[in-house]
Design a protein around this nucleic acid. Sequence first.
RNA 1: GCCCCGGUAGUAUAGCCCGGUCAAGUAUGCGGGCCUUUCGAGCCCGUGACCCGGGUUCAAAUCCCGGCCGGGGCACCA
Length: 544
Amino acid sequence: MVRSRWPELLEERKEETRRTVETLPPLPNDEIYDMIVLRFAPNPDFVLTLGNARPAILNYAYKLRYERLGKKSKFILRFEDTDPKVKRPFIDDPQIRERYSDSDLINYRFIIDDLEWLNIRPDETYIQSDRVVEGVYYDVARRLIEIGGAYVCTCPEDVWRRYRDSKQPCPCRSRNVEENLELFEKMLKGEFREGEAVVRIKTDMAHPDPSVRDWVALRIVNALHPRLVLKYGENFAERYKVWPTYNFAVAVDDHMMGVTHVLRAQEHRINTVKQSYIFKYLDWRQPETIHFGRLHIEGATLSKSKLRELGLRYDDPRLPTLAGLRERGILPEAIWEIMLNVGIKPSDARISLANLYSINRKYLDERANRYLAVIDPVMVEISGLSRDVIAVEIPYHPSHPERGKRRIELRAVNGKILIYLSRGDVELLRKRRKIRLLELMNVEYMGESDGKIIARFLSFDLEDARRDKLDIVQWVPAESNIEITVERVDKTPLTVRDFVKESGLAEPDLSKLRKGEPAQLFRYGFVKVLGERDGKLLLRFIHE
RNA sequence: GCCCCGGUAGUAUAGCCCGGUCAAGUAUGCGGGCCUUUCGAGCCCGUGACCCGGGUUCAAAUCCCGGCCGGGGCACCA
């Protein structure tokens, strides 16, 4: 459904971002590189959130920026899944698992889907767990050991911590190269258990930040990697118990993949320092690094672990995951615009919903056709008609007459027609006495009888309504209409199981919309079609 | 506690590197008006900010110092 709309979507967004992508400030030292290589490196322990959209979009935006400036540029997607224990790449939801089979572990697939939705298409994709199997990190570790830049440390963790805190080297630091190589091979063969041996990078035991002091490059993890198990089986996965730490894998990969610029969140600042030791030892050029602030969104957390704890489906429309926002009716163009707007400042940014909605509305307004619908309907009888049939033709979109009109017919019996109004508008009618029914006629309030509102026909003429400054309200014919239910995400707190729902009636034409398509209900707001349920059309409220 | 980074209107952002053109631009929000057969969109007007205190200078949002506030890091997580 979304896919069928995608082509035109693409065009529109390109038009929009083209300007802004080019207004991004140049990256440091961009002139010394023939090709600008950027990367987005998520951990597949959950789907992407709005927070991840910042590095994903910004990195990709720079790729586009340089390409448009006639410079070669490349965007790499790299899955950083080197901790099979603490950050297991898995969402344990059988319903989701059914949709994706075999070797495509769902998170990897979902992240690619999220990026595709944002129209981000990586030039290259790598998965670090594959590279572990290829031996990439082990090879570099051996080289570092050989040149004395790394050593195997067999101190118990608490013992080492004491050395570190007192800025003293531990005895392992002075082991010779041969011993270290031998110990490392023993690690790989499984002769040590988790915690018994690690490979450390020799840094500076007096470094002011204790975490920089001889940090761990590889360690033994006593857990099978879910992806390797799925792809190659347990026996195979069993062989890989030595895993690189984040900093080691990143330094190795950034270099081997030719990454020239790293744009990441400021929480990684100290990691740049840690990684610099590897670049120096191996005489590699360290990528230029830009750290931007963290992202917050009004009314939600962007912490993956907290989001997971909520126990909701990853694409629940209340969640600030990209999948959730997509379900909710936020368009990828809006996410792009917000991210480009926020930019690469080092300070944190808090996105307000009003802002997000306003940007989203800009794109939605173009696309969404207009429909008549009433919430909490009240029947109104209008008398005084002299025709038997009253027909109106309402354009689908006020700014796009080329989209055509649909015809709505009302039959009068004994000069009377029946329609529905929203309860709120009935109040308006009582108060103002006279009102205009959108595209239809002007009526006057006469009273009530049998729970029915009685009104009298005044005229068809719009000019009369204008002259008398009548309020214009939407209506639905009593004789032909469909039932609708609207799920209000905006009114549903995360702690509540069921969505707040509103029910009403709409003109029959609304049911022609396909699943996933947006619409605007006059004077109500933008909605998205979810499909039919219990004989009613289920809609999701997006925003006003 | 230690170490980094930051602080422009309600929110986001431009300007800060290379002091004057900034009595600070833009978007959104809010108030008002116009337009429109929607309380949507569009158009117009208005509202509203340089964290505080010192210093340097003829001149500081921009440079320096101190304070305050906010964020991040201090893992065999990423």
